[in-house]
Design a binder for these strands. Structure first.
Length: 585
DNA sequence: GACTCTACGTA
DNA sequence: CGTACGTAGAGTCA
């Protein structure tokens, strides 16, 4: 068998893709094509270029990772990621085929069979045709759900892959129907597209990696944490050198044991409830040991987490790589391993464009309050969000200093009620009643234990809380109330943070599409509201302009939901062309 | 070895 | 009694 001819497929339609170690299968509703292993990347490249299908797969991770190892520059344009859409619709982090199929069929995933149960309870395997992935009870057979279908000879695997591809198409149709009926402020179907793109970006990011200059990185590490140790004994020498300045003030302290540090500080007259940095900073002048300890903490952080071991583990061939998730956590932000989301700013000087290339850094300004204005439909906050500096306008509207206004807005979104923010919050209630009511509704839902949905329709489920019996003591009761309150704060924040994540990913998906079309370069880092691109130097300025343009496209799409009470707001990005991430301009 | 606690880097 | 995430070291328990 060979790849499909161009005329064999309808353009711009859903096209299922399943990859195996023997090759791949493409399928429409009524036809399928097999592709031998060596041809997969080439055929996908050609079909994508000529027909621009929306590729349907169970997950980008399972389907595309292998293809990208053969052809790292392959950029498939549009996709429908069943796992990503499942998480959008149903929340949570479980998105394996068994859960996806349970979501599609409306079955309770908790009743799905597992391979263990199959062995124990059904020794005969008498649960239907082994060539049919769906059992009579509607669940996937465990040996299909866990990938067992892909084991065996090329012919058998090819047959099963064809069935698996057909099932993926069926699942995507059903997900699409559910999304179209979903009651959300935004556009769930479009969100499904961008969330699918984000899942693909996650796979691409793991392959592409962040360009890091090892010498520059090691120079930073050396300056902050000391030289590279030559052997385990030398390791102790370097560590003692780091510790010495603090031990001069607090002899005999185990710096890595918070209890030891706390009692050592108490011994010099500083009785603190804990030894966290922000608390130490409050008493910085009280004793020279505090300053030494703060400096030590910084260098110890680099030494243990972002030092030579980190570089040796994750930096290869000038690229720092880690696994990514396109939507993780409660609100569906992207996450990254290998410390890619939390490397200290000091190390950004080592993130450097390769020869002939430049970085394009773009970060969204004040994105969460702008998102709040849009999704809540608050006219006054939206008016502020049409300004370059939202907080300045809020300050005018509240009649306070800009700094106070910023704290008040952030406090409202995070659910803070104490301190100076508490007072400013009352002014917020008066000035932005619609936005505050929106936040309160989310908080109330979370408090009750009900899930909330983001603008794009992502379900953010709430966790269960053990009820306390009526005769419970005051302590148990207040602990219970505290847990309910934390659930409320989480929900209040999730509708903003999650919707902002959707805006970011829609923007990122568009930027990625432009990069793919022009061949200008790659997305190399996604940092919640900041994008880092690595592009050919000769087109860097064009790419930067495209990034701004793409943000306007994304914002306009959001504004099109205006008839549903969504306020048109402006989203702004600071876009710069740089050699090093740390560069100011 | 799995788990919790403390701590801290990023947004 | 301000949100989310990932990583590491020390301690606890088995």
């Amino acid at each position: 068998m060979s790849g499909p001819g161009v005329g064999d497929l309808p353009a711009s339609s859903h096209l299922a893709l399943v990859t195996t170690r023997h090759g791949a299968v493409l399928a429409t509703r009524d036809r399928s094509w097999g592709i031998p292993a060596g041809d997969v990347a080439g055929v996908l490249r050609r079909v994508d270029a000529e027909l621009a299908p929306r590729w349907v797969w169970w997950s980008a991770e399972a389907t595309v990772s292998g293809v990208l190892s053969d052809d790292p520059a392959l950029r498939l344009r549009r996709c429908w990621d069943l796992a990503a859409v499942h998480r959008l619709l149903h929340g949570g982090s479980l998105d394996d085929p068994a859960h996806v199929w349970a979501g599609v069929t409306g079955l309770d995933a908790g009743t799905r069979p597992t391979s263990g149960q199959l062995d124990l309870l059904r020794p005969d395997g008498d649960d239907g045709d082994p060539l049919e992935p769906v059992r009579p009870d509607g669940h996937l057979r465990p040996d299909w759900a866990d990938g067992g279908w892909a084991l065996g000879g090329a012919e058998d695997v090819g047959r099963r892959a064809t069935r698996w591809a057909a099932l993926a198409l069926q699942a995507s149709d059903e997900q699409g129907r559910t999304l179209r009926d979903l009651d959300a402020g935004g556009d769930p179907v479009h969100t499904a597209w961008s969330e699918s793109a984000a899942a693909l970006v996650a796979v691409e990011l793991a392959v592409t990696g962040l360009p890091v200059d090892r010498d520059a990185a090691e120079a930073v590490v050396a300056g902050v944490a000391g030289r590279r140790a030559e052997n385990p004994a030398d390791e102790a020498v370097v560590r003692d050198t780091r510790d010495a300045p603090v031990l001069a003030h607090l002899p005999g302290t185990d710096l890595r044991n918070p209890a030891s540090v706390r009692s050592a500080l108490a011994a010099v007259g500083l009785d603190l409830p804990d030894t966290r940095s922000w608390r130490l900073e409050q008493v910085a002048g009280a004793h020279p040991a505090v300053e030494a300890l703060l400096a030590w903490r910084k260098s110890e952080r680099v030494a243990t987490t972002y030092g030579y071991r980190w570089l040796d583990t994750h930096l290869r061939g000038g690229r720092l790589r880690g696994a990514w998730s396109g939507s993780d956590g409660g609100a569906g932000r992207m996450t990254a391993l290998a410390g890619l989301h939390s490397m200290p700013r000091e190390l950004r000087v080592a993130v450097r464009a390769e020869p002939g290339h430049l970085l394009v850094r773009a970060d969204l300004g004040q994105v969460e309050p702008r998102v709040l204005a849009a999704v809540s439909g608050d006219p006054a906050l939206a008016a502020a969000a049409r300004q370059d500096d939202l907080y300045a306008r809020v300050a005018t509207q509240l009649g306070v200093e800009r700094g106070v206004a910023k704290v008040a807005v952030l406090a409202a979104m995070y659910g803070q009620t104490s301190g100076a923010a508490g007072a400013a919050l009352r002014d917020m209630e008066r000035t932005y009643p619609v936005a505050l009511a929106y936040l309160r509704a989310a908080q109330d839902a979370g408090h009750r234990g009900d899930g909330v949905r983001t603008f794009g329709g992502r379900l953010v489920p709430m966790w269960d809380v053990d009820e306390v019996p009526p005769e419970a003591g005051a302590g148990a009761l207040s602990a219970y109330r505290a847990v309910l309150a934390s659930r409320g704060r989480f929900a209040r924040n999730a509708v903003v943070q999650g919707s902002a994540a959707e805006l970011f990913k829609a923007w990122t998906a568009g930027v990625r599409a432009r990069l793919a079309a022009s061949g200008a370069g790659d997305v190399v880092l996604c940092l919640h509201d900041e994008l880092l691109l690595h592009v050919r130097a000769d087109v860097a300025d064009d790419v930067a302009a495209g990034v701004v343009d793409e943000l306007e496209t994304t914002a306009a799409r959001w504004a099109r939901c205006a008839e549903r009470g969504v306020a048109p707001v402006r989203f702004v990005a600071d876009v710069r062309v740089l050699e090093r991430w740390s560069d100011v301009s």
